[in-house]
């Protein structure tokens, strides 16, 4: 019982610290978690961490939150997962709360305004960079279907204002059908 209590504490503070240090969101937390839980605490095996990463990446929601749920669940079941979610969510919650209370005062400040104008151009560039990298990955697969899905989805969102959720559902169905057909083709070729 005591050991379990200690684990909850350790789980909470480990994820709290990791989340507080994860700038730029998302994937950055994975190598940090690997270092902590695989190398330092030996709670998770190397291969298992890769699988958990794949699950975290492919499930809805923030990767950092998903990864911490998986780690917490693995170490201490559902209560463990709740503890790690709390640990992951609290640092951004606290920091953004503080910032947003000063936000209006900040926003009306001339210097902050100048900085924000530049930073907006910066964010646009960062997103552009992300899109170029990700779209490059799709093009390198050298398959027609993903490229077609990408172009049609873009047109649907940008020019026809189609509901994003509808597009996600349709593309998920296309992915499922594609996997099923390819698996059957693979089985038939054998």
């Amino acid at each position: 019982m005591d050991a379990e209590k200690k684990n909850y504490g350790k789980l909470f503070f480990s994820t709290f610290k990791l989340s507080a240090c994860t700038f730029g969101g998302g994937f950055v937390i994975i190598p940090l978690m690997r270092k902590k839980f695989v190398e330092e605490l030996h709670w998770i095996e190397e291969q298992e961490m890769l699988d958990l990463t794949a699950i975290a990446q492919s499930s809805p929601g923030a990767i950092a939150v998903n990864a911490s749920i998986l780690v917490g669940y693995h170490v201490a079941g559902v209560p463990g997962a709740l503890v790690t979610v709390a640990g992951t969510v609290l640092p951004p919650l606290i920091i953004i709360s503080i910032i947003s209370f000063f936000y209006t005062a900040f926003r009306d400040n001339a210097i902050v305004n100048m900085a924000m104008t530049g930073m907006l151009a910066g964010v646009a560039a960062v997103i552009c960079d992300v899109v170029i990298t990700m779209a490059g990955g799709v093009l390198r697969q050298k398959r027609v279907l993903p490229v077609l899905v990408m172009l049609l989805s873009f047109a649907a969102v940008r020019f026809f204002n189609v509901n994003i959720i509808l597009i996600i559902l349709i593309c998920g169905a296309i992915g499922a059908a594609d996997t099923y057909l390819r698996a059957r083709k693979g089985a038939g070729a054998k």
Binding site: C21, V65, P92
Partner: peptide, 8 residues
């Protein structure tokens, strides 16, 4: 700031 964009 640290943390996932969605949470922020």
């Amino acid at each position: 700031t640290p943390g996932p964009i969605a949470i922020n």
